[in-house]
Amino acid sequence: TFVALYDYESRTETDLSFKKGERLQIVNNTEGDWWLAHSLTTGQTGYIPSNYVAP
């Protein structure tokens, strides 16, 4: 799992909003700078900017 370093507000319907400190499970990280992730807090799935999270 990864932890959010910053808050992120989604800009498209495929993005995932999250708050700093939220735990995220990475589903697919082969898309370059945008990873498909599942929030362990909200249960939602969407794309996140990879530079906003850390292991």
Score class of each variant (00 low, 15 high):
Lys20Arg: 10
Thr14Glu: 11
Thr1Gln: 12
Leu5Gln: 06
Glu31Asp: 15
Thr42Glu: 02
Ser39Val: 03
Ile48Trp: 00
Gly21His: 05
Lys20Asp: 02
Pro49Arg: 05
Asn29Arg: 14
Arg11Asn: 13
Asn28Ala: 13
Glu13Ile: 09
Gln25Pro: 00
Ile48Ser: 00
Ser39Leu: 05
Leu24Gln: 00
Gly21Trp: 04
Gly46Tyr: 00
Thr45Arg: 11
Leu36Asp: 01
Leu24Asp: 00
Thr30Glu: 12
Val27Gln: 09
Gln25Ala: 11
Tyr6Asp: 08
Asp33Arg: 09
Pro55Gly: 07
Val3Lys: 04
Ile48Asp: 01
Gly43Phe: 07
Thr45His: 07
Asn29Cys: 14
Phe18Val: 09
Thr42Asn: 06
Thr42Cys: 03
Trp34Lys: 10
Ala4Pro: 01
Asn51Ser: 14
Asn29Phe: 15
Leu16Ile: 12
Phe18Ile: 11
Ser39Met: 03
Thr12Arg: 14
Thr42Lys: 03
Tyr8Phe: 10
Thr30His: 11
Ser50Thr: 06
Thr45Val: 12
Phe2Asp: 01
Ile26Arg: 06
Leu36Trp: 10
His38Cys: 14
Val27Gly: 05
Tyr8Arg: 05
Phe2Val: 14
Ser10Glu: 04
Lys19Trp: 03
Arg23Thr: 14
Thr41Arg: 11
Asp15Asn: 10
Asn29Ser: 14
Asn51His: 13
Thr45Ser: 10
Lys20Phe: 05
Glu9Trp: 08
Asp15Ala: 07
Asp33Leu: 10
Lys20Tyr: 05
Ser50Asp: 03
Thr45Trp: 12
Ser17Thr: 11
Gln25Arg: 15
Thr14His: 14
Glu22Phe: 01
Thr1Cys: 14
Leu36Gln: 05
Leu5Thr: 04
Asn51Leu: 08
Pro49Asn: 09
Ala37Cys: 03
Val53Gln: 02
Lys20Cys: 07
Ile26Trp: 02
Gly21Ile: 00
Asp33Trp: 09
Gly32Lys: 14
Thr41Ser: 12
Leu5Asn: 03
Arg23Pro: 08
Asp7Ser: 06
Gln44Thr: 07
Asp15Thr: 08
Ser39Trp: 00
Thr12Val: 11
Glu9Thr: 12
Glu22Gln: 06
Leu5Met: 09
Asn51Lys: 13
Ser39Ala: 04
Thr1Gly: 07
Asn28Phe: 09
Asp33Pro: 10
Glu31Gly: 14
Glu31Leu: 14
Phe18Met: 08
Val3Pro: 02
Ser17Asn: 08
Thr1Phe: 15
Tyr52Glu: 03
Tyr47Gln: 04
Ala54Ser: 12
Ser17Ile: 04
Leu40Glu: 09
Leu5Ser: 03
Thr42Ala: 02
Gly46Glu: 00
Asn51Trp: 15
Glu13Thr: 11
Val53Lys: 01
Gly43Ala: 05
Lys19Thr: 07
Tyr8Thr: 01
Asn29Tyr: 13
Leu5Ile: 10
Ala54Phe: 09
Asp7Arg: 02
Thr1Ala: 10
Ser50Arg: 12
